[in-house]
C-alpha cells in the first residue's frame, strides 16, 4: 500500500464536507426560487370558538392584488384563495368554514363537484340559505378537502362556491381594488386527531390557452388554488 501524506487524507475529508455543503446550498437555493414551488409564508389559523369548535374565514378573489400584491405577471392576475392556502385547524373539533367569494363563474368540467359532499348535514349555507348542490354554471370554485394516502382519519369535504354574476357592480373596495358584493358560503366538518390533509379547487378556473382550459396556472399552484390543511392539537 502506497504511503500517502496526511494532507491526502485531510483532502478526502475536506472534499466530503465541501460536497455535502454544496448540496445543502443547492437545496436552500431551490427552496428560495419563488417560481419553482410557491408556498405562502403566512398561515391562516382557525379561531377557537369553544373547547371543540373553531371558525376559519377565507376569501376567493378574481385576482391576486389583495394577498399576493408583490407578485409579478402573470401571477398578479391569477384567481386566488386569501389570506393563505396554508390552513391550520384544531383537532377533534367541529370546524365552521366561512368563504367570501368575489369571483365570477367558470363552468365545471366534472359534474361531481356540483354537489356538497362530506359536510355536517350534507349542506352548505349560501348567503344563509341551505343548499345541497348548485347549478354547474353558477359555480366559481370548489373547496375540496381530501386525505393523503394511508391517513388514519380520512376526511373528504367538497363544497361548490356560488359565483357572483358577471355583470355585478363593484361597490366593495379592498386594498384599493374594487370587487362585487361577495357571496358568503359556510359549512362545517369534523376533524379527528392531528394530521395533514391537502385541499384543491376542482372548478378549472386557471389561465390556459389550451383545451381543456383552466387546469393550469392558479389551479396547479400552491398559494393560489391548492394548499394544505394541518390539524393540530
Amino acid at each position: 500500500m502506497k504511503k500517502h501524506t496526511s494532507g491526502f487524507y485531510i483532502g478526502i475529508i475536506v472534499s466530503l464536507i465541501v460536497g455535502f455543503g454544496a448540496t445543502a446550498g443547492i437545496v436552500v437555493g431551490f427552496q428560495s426560487i419563488r417560481g419553482l414551488g410557491y408556498e405562502p409564508s403566512a398561515v391562516a389559523r382557525a379561531n377557537k370558538t369553544g373547547p371543540s369548535s373553531a371558525t376559519l374565514a377565507l376569501q376567493t378573489f378574481p385576482d391576486s392584488q389583495v394577498c399576493h400584491a408583490d407578485a409579478g405577471a402573470p401571477q398578479i392576475d391569477w384567481v386566488t384563495y386569501c389570506p393563505s392556502t396554508h390552513l391550520e385547524v384544531p383537532a377533534n373539533s367541529v370546524i365552521t368554514v366561512v368563504i367570501s367569494n368575489y369571483d365570477g363563474a367558470t363552468t365545471l368540467a366534472n359534474d361531481y363537484f356540483r354537489q356538497v359532499h362530506g359536510t355536517v348535514g350534507d349542506v352548505e349555507l349560501v348567503n344563509n340559505k341551505p343548499m345541497s348542490g348548485l347549478d354547474a354554471d353558477k359555480i366559481s370554485h370548489t373547496f375540496t378537502l381530501q386525505s393523503v394516502p394511508d391517513t388514519s382519519y380520512p376526511i373528504f369535504v367538497s363544497v361548490p362556491i356560488a359565483a357572483v354574476p358577471d355583470d355585478a357592480p363593484t361597490p366593495v373596495t379592498i386594498n384599493g381594488n374594487s370587487y362585487p358584493k361577495p357571496n358568503i358560503i359556510s359549512f362545517q366538518f369534523r376533524t379527528g386527531p392531528a394530521g395533514t390533509y391537502v385541499w384543491h379547487c376542482y372548478d378549472p378556473c386557471g389561465e390556459d390557452r389550451e383545451p381543456p382550459f383552466g387546469f393550469s396556472g392558479a389551479m396547479s399552484t400552491t398559494g393560489y388554488m391548492a394548499g394544505t390543511l394541518t390539524v393540530t392539537n
Binding site: 431551490f30 427552496q31 419553482l36 410557491y38 408556498e39 393523503v148 399552484t221 394544505t228
Partner: peptide
C-alpha cells in the same frame, strides 16, 4: 420521510 419536508411538491417534480 412522508410529507413535504424540504420542497414543495412542484419543486420536487422539477428536480
Amino acid at each position: 420521510s412522508p410529507g413535504a419536508i424540504f420542497f414543495n411538491p412542484a419543486t420536487y417534480n422539477t428536480i
